[in-house]
Computed example of a mutant assay.
Amino acid sequence: MRKAVISLLLVSAVITGCGSAQRTSQSTASPPAGGAQPLTDAEQLRISDAQQRLIGTCMKRQGFEFWEAERLSLEESRTLGYVLDDVGWARKYGYGSRLRAKDAAARASNPNLAYRKSLSEQRRQTYDKALDGGVDVPVIAVEIPGGGTVRKQMGGCVAESEKKLYGDPREWFRAEKTAGHLRSLYVPRVLTDQRFSAAQKAWSRCMKKAGYVYKDPGASRQSAIAQSDRAAEPKVFEAERELAVADATCARDTDLRPIGEERESHYIAQLRDRYGEALDTHSRVQHQALDRAKKTVGPRA
């Protein structure tokens, strides 16, 4: 458990799995509240980078070395979600298999892991306590939409960094987990929505004309993921790129992303009676964190 926690805390939070791919302008990781716009990928990454900087400053103050995680570029860190409609990005990166391999290699070679391992047992315990409060640190828990409970340790430099960015870490944890897990409630509705289903069928027909037979973008993406362990091979990566370009082209030609985002907003709105306060808190605190992050680090190139 300790090894898993440390490994998680020492690596950068590179966005690779949620939202839409066309996200240099705007991210749909959470719905807007009170007229506030959702954060862009660049803005979310800036918060993540600021937290790394704050953790490092805190750890060095405790007498330990700390290296900020190796970062992918802003372009490489672009969010990939259900719909990919950025043809230029797809032509360059396919579905991002080589980027995921690059990120995984950076995580595996993170110097903080080797540094911690080099410490004596007693010194390692002190390191852990400085980082996240150690094994006896208080844990907060929150019930999430759809059922279940998630927990988080609250201590050390990690907690300090979150407090500096988000204010009350408990308030942020509750809002973040609630907003994030709402996907389990509205995504199934979007996928079965009549308008979105019609757009997916149009996408499938477009793909068939391009020489690919897939029911939806998820199936197309999954076929590429199945070959991702061979992405270093030129022919395999070229096939991934060609498929991703066809996928993105058809998504753009059928307006799949804007239709999906409109239906997503529709179903999220239906949840606001119960979860509106958490959504508004999530948006407000996230924007506050961005303002604080701008005072700590510059934008990612």
Rank of each mutant, 00 (worst) to 15 (best):
residue 5 V to G: 01
residue 31 P to C: 05
residue 56 G to S: 07
residue 261 E to T: 11
residue 23 R to I: 09
residue 230 R to C: 02
residue 71 R to G: 06
residue 182 L to M: 11
residue 117 K to Q: 15
residue 250 C to P: 00
residue 149 T to R: 14
residue 217 P to L: 13
residue 65 E to R: 15
residue 8 L to A: 13
residue 126 T to S: 11
residue 223 S to V: 04
residue 180 G to Y: 12
residue 4 A to C: 02
residue 202 A to P: 00
residue 205 R to L: 04
residue 280 D to E: 14
residue 46 R to W: 03
residue 155 G to L: 03
residue 174 R to G: 08
residue 88 G to Q: 12
residue 198 A to Y: 01
residue 240 E to F: 07
residue 263 R to N: 05
residue 267 Y to Q: 07
residue 159 A to T: 04
residue 104 A to M: 14
residue 41 D to C: 11
residue 251 A to P: 00
residue 96 G to K: 15
residue 100 R to N: 15
residue 282 H to S: 12
residue 142 V to T: 13
residue 194 Q to I: 12
residue 101 A to H: 14
residue 98 R to L: 12
residue 174 R to Y: 10
residue 208 K to M: 15
residue 178 T to G: 08
residue 261 E to G: 02
residue 95 Y to W: 13
residue 29 A to C: 10
residue 91 R to W: 12
residue 85 D to H: 06
residue 123 R to I: 03
residue 30 S to Y: 15
residue 300 R to G: 02
residue 243 L to D: 05
residue 153 Q to C: 04
residue 44 Q to F: 10
residue 227 Q to E: 01
residue 77 S to G: 08
residue 143 E to R: 14
residue 275 Y to L: 02
residue 208 K to Y: 13
residue 26 Q to D: 10
residue 77 S to T: 08
residue 159 A to W: 00
residue 299 P to S: 05
residue 113 L to H: 05
residue 210 A to F: 06
residue 3 K to V: 07
residue 251 A to Q: 01
residue 117 K to A: 15
residue 34 G to C: 03
residue 94 G to R: 09
residue 290 L to D: 11
residue 226 A to D: 11
residue 249 T to W: 07
residue 101 A to I: 09
residue 266 H to G: 00
residue 57 T to D: 10
residue 54 L to K: 11
residue 141 A to R: 15
residue 45 L to T: 08
residue 4 A to H: 09
residue 185 L to N: 04
residue 199 A to P: 03
residue 273 D to L: 10
residue 298 G to W: 10
residue 237 F to N: 13
residue 233 E to Q: 06
residue 267 Y to W: 15
residue 92 K to M: 09
residue 26 Q to M: 10
residue 251 A to Y: 00
residue 100 R to M: 15
residue 35 G to Y: 06
residue 90 A to E: 05
residue 53 R to G: 00
residue 89 W to L: 07
residue 284 R to V: 05
residue 16 T to L: 10
residue 208 K to H: 14
residue 165 L to D: 00
residue 131 L to Q: 08
